[in-house]
Design a protein around this nucleic acid. Structure first.
Length: 234
DNA sequence: TCGTGATCATCT
DNA sequence: AGATGATCACGA
């Protein structure tokens, strides 16, 4: 592991530089990366949600203050670690962005927060994420995803349906089963958190929600991007 | 409090 | 097993 002793890298200047860094992680474990960055591993994996993602952000030089901008603002690239099983298949949905209830009636697909966040995504698979202990989880090969026009069209249809339903005050009737590739799911500290949302008659309190890409969708795009036939799985 | 990073725990 | 609904940590 290079760069041991530095807690955070400088931002990459080019897409190529970013990809070189990301691919250098392939085959290494979370414990190795944490040691290189002098970061202690959380004791309980239950309390480590997001840890690997933030560790990788530091390793690749993502902008920690990017906020709603892409993780690499200059490059317009979003970074996402994605848990995969031993066959490299994603098993979890992927959070994309939270939904602002105040904008559901005016936001358009073209300028939506969702669309902006999926235009260019650097996926970094984390193998055996659910089976192995946190430190033993191993990085796979990073790949860069720019949605095809047909992928964008599929997502647009789901997005418009879901955002439309919410804007029409139907959030309470939506479940995670709605949407073919996208779904709306809770995104909150706990189930007692509420926010004002459009209601059928008047605004009402609802659980905060976000857009998630279904695991089957991300599995399909990772499959499309993985060209190495019969890749060396572990 | 809200938005970022997600995974956990349970139900089907 | 896979998906859904719930939850954990942190920074501004």
């Amino acid at each position: 592991m290079e760069n041991a002793g530095s807690s955070r890298r400088q931002p990459p200047q080019t897409e190529t530089e970013l990809m070189v860094r990301a691919r250098a992680l392939c085959g290494h474990t979370v414990a190795e990366l944490a040691q290189a960055l002098q970061t202690p591993l959380p004791a309980e994996s239950r309390r480590a949600k997001g840890f690997v993602g933030q560790l990788v952000e530091a390793a690749l030089g993502a902008d920690r203050y990017a906020g709603e901008r892409p993780d690499f603002p200059q490059l317009g690239i979003e970074l996402k670690t994605i848990p995969v099983d031993r066959r490299g298949r994603s098993a979890e949905s992927t959070f994309v962005c939270s939904i602002n209830f105040g904008r559901t009636e005016t936001e358009t697909w073209e300028c939506s927060r969702f669309r902006q966040r999926i235009l260019c995504v650097l996926w970094l698979p984390v193998q055996c994420a659910k089976e192995a202990a946190l430190g033993e989880r191993r990085f796979g090969q990073a790949c860069l995803w720019r949605p095809t026009s047909s992928e964008l069209e599929s997502l647009r249809q789901d997005w418009e349906y879901l955002i439309g339903a919410i804007g029409a005050g139907q959030l309470a009737r939506l479940t995670a089963r709605a949407g073919r590739y996208l779904q709306v799911r809770p995104k909150a500290a706990h189930a007692r958190v509420t926010r004002w949302a459009p209601g059928e008659d008047a605004p009402q309190k609802d659980l905060p929600v976000g857009f998630y890409l279904r695991a089957q969708f991300t599995a399909a795009i990772l499959g499309r991007l993985t060209q190495v036939a019969g890749g060396e799985n572990q």
